[in-house]
Amino acid sequence: MSSSPLPSYLEQSPEVAARFARIQQRPITLTVQNLSKTFTAPNTPPRLTLDNISFHVHHREFLCVLGPSGCGKSTLIRIIAGLEQASSGSVLLYNKPVQSPGPERGMVFQNYSLFPWLTVKENVMFGRTIAGIPDFLAEAEARQWLSLVGLADYENAYPHQLSGGMKQRVAIARALANKPRILLMDEPFAALDAQTRAQMQDYLLELWRKVDLTILFITHDFDEAIYLSDRILVLSANPGRIAEIIQNPVPRPRNRQQFTSPPFLATYNRLQELIHPVSLLQNPSNLSNIPRLTHTTDQVE
């Protein structure tokens, strides 16, 4: 999609355009080709969930996949992770097809999925010891990753003793410890409260800036997608199709003042058009069937 002309509603500043030109010079990390997925379950007709998805991610790119709930975002990322089989099409990592899960594709789940029987440090060591790295080396590495995510003091705590944001930082450290070629994140901050989520977004951007990371990030939150991404892949629902791949015109480095900047708002409006959120208020007939149950003098507005 990077070769298609810029849509007129996205006015890129020269700096942003130059950045995208640079990104496109980089090698392609992940290629998804004509990917389709049909779920067949007993007693239900087969369901086409993903329809002919094709895109690629460049090295060090931050790609967000945005779509309404149930459009197949998780299915897509799980196929890329190798946790689910595609019905047709292929996923290539540096031109090698992937079939099963592997440590070169790190995954961060919405529900953290930390191993509750291991301490924070042992969780981060897990992938390394599985790979046969001696314990003392894995431990030294784990300590480095933990200090990178600001949890050096908690290395001996168990996951259940941490807050949601801290758990997710451990999960990120655990995935990074394998030095993955690409980091797959499935709505990682969706379960966090608003303040923690904002912190984690800033924190992830900082990490991405300083560590050699290529990120495929799934979200249903428009602000999050615009704030974090280089490009936004918009999925439409039923079946999941690529509605558009937007080159994010908001310049980097990002900050929260940009939320009200013209490029941010233009992108936001475009996303809204693409995804058509069902708003009750836009269609008064959705509300009119609630009869008044209070006295007519009871005016709350």
Binding site: F109, S113, F115
Partner: peptide, 27 residues
């Protein structure tokens, strides 16, 4: 099963899965 999937994405082999994940998880 989340934990099994997490372990698989971290490079756990089928053989390691039993001793490193399943048994500690259900212990």
């Amino acid at each position: 099963y989340n934990l099994i999937e997490a372990a698989l994405t971290l490079g756990t082999s089928q053989r390691q899965l039993l001793s490193r994940v399943v048994i500690p998880a259900i212990a």
